[in-house]
């Protein structure tokens, strides 16, 4: 790959990944919509700019690592990996189908390029912390980085705070966590289900360096990762404020879309089921002004 993509190119890539997600979910007929859509910008920044990786060598010994802790958001990781060249984009259509490498929740042993198995919430951060501990204390590999994405609802899990305490104690400075702060979980808003605030204060009190960013601003994401790498005596968390369902107007901010794909539910304000996927793609494709709605028919 010659040179890194420009910010505009990254934004276009994120849009393409959102379209991939809609297509995958419609084809699969089940899965989560809101989280994968709102993580598209972070995942694009990670796979196309931030991480030192080689899609042709997923086990490359010098690679940076990515651990997905909220495994239900894996469609966005699969889409980013396919767009980055880990496997053909066409394979995205096999998501959740029998015989597919793209399991409903990520399984390390099924697909090269995955670092961990996750789904039951709260354990991905610990797995990443274990790897980061190894790099820092056992391997003397201070030039490699371990990136993690967690959900915000996932922070209800006790396992997360055990990991946070552990990483704080050992000052795992190569561990960089993006919290997808989209404020929803299955039963409603995070603050009504189990309040997380003061979230910044919680992480700081566990010994972490905390940043808060607009999780849809590619430049902010890249800058925050750069800042996190410069903090050499603490693990870093980047609380990334996102809009659930970002990019598809009838899904945005609506927790009903947390665990459902287009075409399966009709919450208030959404189009009829049969039209949802088409409208979602239309919305996404017109975002960058390259395709007119007429092209979709």
């Amino acid at each position: 790959m010659g040179g890194k993509l420009t910010v505009t190119q990254l934004e276009q890539k994120a849009n393409k990944i959102r379209q991939d997600i809609i297509n995958m979910l419609v084809e699969a007929g089940s899965g989560h919509s809101a989280g994968p859509l709102d993580l598209a910008d972070i995942m694009t920044a990670l796979y196309f700019n931030i991480m030192n990786i080689d899609p042709s060598k997923p086990e490359w010994s010098e690679r940076d690592l990515f651990f997905l802790s909220n495994g239900h958001c894996v469609p966005v990781q699969y889409a980013a990996m396919a767009e980055r060249g880990y496997f053909p984009v066409e394979e995205l259509g096999t998501l959740r189908k029998f015989g597919s490498r793209l399991q409903g929740h990520p399984e390390r042993t099924k697909l090269p390029g995955l670092e961990n198995t996750s789904g039951p919430l709260g354990s991905g951060l610990s797995q990443a912390a274990g790897y980061a501990y190894s790099l820092q204390y056992l391997d003397n590999a201070r030039h490699r980085w371990v990136y993690v994405v967690t959900g915000d609802g996932e922070l209800n899990e006790g396992n997360i705070w055990e990991a946070a305490m552990f990483a704080g104690k050992y000052k795992l400075s190569q561990l960089i966590v993006f919290v997808d702060r989209n404020n929803i979980q299955i039963d409603g808003s995070t603050e009504s289900v189990m309040p997380l605030e003061d979230l910044r204060g919680k992480w700081e009190s566990f010994g972490w360096h905390v940043q808060e960013i607009d999780g849809h601003n590619i430049e902010s994401i890249i800058d925050a990762a750069s800042m996190a790498r410069a903090i050499s005596n603490k693990p870093s968390v980047i609380i990334s404020h996102t809009i659930p369902g970002k990019g598809v107007d009838f899904m945005e901010y609506d927790y009903h879309w947390h665990g459902n794909p287009p075409g399966t539910i009709e919450p208030p304000g959404s189009p009829p089921k049969a039209d949802q996927a088409k409208q979602a793609l239309m919305k996404l494709r017109t975002l960058d002004g390259k395709i007119t709605p007429g092209d979709l028919h």
Binding site: F67, R108, E115, N116, G122, S123, S126, Q127, A128, A129, G130, Y131, A132, Y133, S134, L135, L138, D139, G158, N159, E162, A163, M165, F166, K169
Partner: peptide, 22 residues
């Protein structure tokens, strides 16, 4: 590695260490 009284973290950190070849 002293893990403190945190058995969930005990085995999941170990999983990550195994991924790193330990």
């Amino acid at each position: 590695i002293e893990m403190g009284i945190a058995e969930q973290n005990l085995v999941t950190v170990a999983s990550g260490l195994a991924r790193a070849g330990k």
